[in-house]
Simulated assay, not measured.
Amino acid sequence: MLDALAHRFVAAGAVGVIAARRHGATVETAAAGRVVLSEGAASPDVNGYFRLGSVTKPYTAALVLQRLHREIDRPVTRWLPIGDDRITLRHLLTHRSGLHNYTDDFGDLAAVVAGRHTAWNAWDLVRPALDRPRHFAPGAGRSYCNTGYLLLGLVIERVSGRSWAEEVTASLVEPLGLTGTHTGAVRLPAPHAHGYLTVDGRPVDVTDFDPSQAGAAGVVVSTLADVNRFFRALLAEDLLPPAALDAMRAGGLGLGRLETPDGPVYGYNGGFFGFQARSWHSADGERQLTLSATTTTASAGGLPPTEDLLPALHGRRPADSRRG
């Protein structure tokens, strides 16, 4: 069933796909497509590294809730000089701040490719976004906002006294034994598949990329096994107090929720130039599915929707999810 899902992603335009499904002690993996665009190239390695993109956000949310779960309704100005004391940590976690999303300004793919080795400071990305008009008053709507997660990363730095990357390592990577998880990797460790962006009709290899422009919103590099291990620990209450995890599940505090006939599942989708990741899990973390697809685009357009992963998560063939 996992092979069928991986091949559906390739048929929809992915260059290569790796996936891992876990049910209890049983782990199933699959690979499809090519590790690079060249004809005849091998399939990607299921143990390979990939960019998580926004699947990073649950890691950042977990750090915030570890330290500040009793203070999520406090204004962000308690920690950062953002000039609006109506915006709370909860608003940032749930994309309800109304702030401008700084990545909406990255539409010129030629400029993205040309600047892919530029190192960014989070404040240099946040300050212009704070000066832009707000979409709505805090809490009055919802609009996906990477700016909010950069701010959460800066809050973590203020509270912990160390960088966001150092805090990820100290509070998540080392305690959970996530030996394949990295922050800030410009060059992916081997093995890995290659991601591309199409500029002027030509695919450009963007596997090597300074990810600092994504920061606490999308910088993590990891493996299928490590991502599943992180979410398993999160959902098993190994990282957060029960009340904090309940709030995370119920309120969308950095964790997506989808309803299925088998009960709710939790996780996140992510994209980083040339890479698309999906990671979804049963409420108890006993059923898990994480998938990485390499692409020639900056978006997930054309790839199967998240709902098409859920039958495989629950042990059924992907075809079971097709709607008539």
Rank of each mutant, 00 (worst) to 15 (best):
L150V: 03
V64F: 10
L310Q: 03
D205F: 07
L245S: 11
E166S: 14
F209I: 02
L188E: 10
T147G: 07
G24M: 14
T26Y: 09
G16H: 10
G215C: 01
S299M: 01
T88W: 00
A312W: 08
T260L: 00
L255T: 00
G301W: 09
T207K: 02
L93E: 05
D105T: 13
G153H: 09
A32K: 04
L313M: 13
L63F: 09
L188A: 00
N228Y: 09
R278E: 06
A19G: 04
D320G: 12
E39N: 09
V227Y: 13
R8Q: 07
A114P: 04
L93Q: 13
A4H: 14
F50C: 04
A225F: 03
F275Y: 15
T198H: 03
A214L: 09
D85W: 11
A32V: 03
A41R: 06
V112K: 08
A214Y: 01
R249V: 04
G40H: 02
A283D: 05
Q276M: 00
R278V: 07
G254W: 13
Y102P: 05
S212E: 02
L93G: 01
L150A: 01
E39K: 09
L37N: 12
A244H: 00
A4N: 13
G274S: 01
G252A: 14
A216F: 08
H135A: 15
V206S: 07
E259Y: 08
L255C: 04
A140M: 03
N101S: 15
R34N: 08
G285F: 11
A20S: 14
T198Q: 00
G274T: 09
A12P: 08
R142N: 00
L176A: 11
A31R: 02
G33I: 07
R316Q: 15
L130Y: 06
L253Q: 07
L2N: 03
G48Y: 01
G252Y: 13
T297P: 09
V204C: 07
W79A: 10
G267D: 13
F273G: 05
V168E: 09
T29E: 14
L65F: 12
R74F: 00
L99N: 14
L289F: 06
